[in-house]
Structures are given as structure tokens and as C-alpha cells.
Amino acid sequence: MSLEALQTDAEGYLANRDDWSEELAQELASQMGIQLGDEHWKVLKTARTIEGESGSSPGLRKISKRSETPIKSIYKLFPDGPAKLIAKIAGIPKPKSCL
């Protein structure tokens, strides 16, 4: 599916998690100026797995523990707000509160 045809919410997060693919993630990441390497993939796939299991986008500490990537390193991999960038590239909703 091309980037233009994708359905996203008002803030640019993927509306349907099944529209996601690794190719799409590559494309989204490069738009944000990030070249995805193995360390990025480990973090992205962990975030996606946890969201699939628990129904909510995880915080960075949980991603960090599960992917065995220190939070500091996650900030280096996804500068400028890793929580949002990870959710966007991994095709999961943004981390939210109840209001």
C-alpha cells in the first residue's frame, strides 16, 4: 500500500494496524530522517508486539526492558521524541491517557 493511500488519524498515526508492513516502516522512517538498522528494528518490533498483546502502546521503560535496549540508547535511535516516533513507524496508536 502506498503512503498516500494509507488511512491515518488526525495526527498521522496509522488507523489500521494491519496496513503496516516492514517496507512501509522503512518509508515512514526515512521520511523522518531515520535509517532503520537492526537496533531500530528490535525496538519497533518489541513495541508492536507489546501493543498486540496488551491493547495499548507501551511506555519506553517497558520497550526498553523487553528489547534489552537502554532508554538512553532508544533516545539516540529515535531522536526528537522516541515515544511518538516509535508508535508512528511501528504502526500503533500514540501512547495516551484516559482524557
Partner: peptide
């Protein structure tokens, strides 16, 4: 840590 005081 979220993107606003209100997130919805």
C-alpha cells in the same frame, strides 16, 4: 511524558 496534558 505524553504529548499533552490531554491526549484524546
Amino acid at each position: 511524558p505524553l504529548d499533552g496534558a490531554f491526549t484524546k
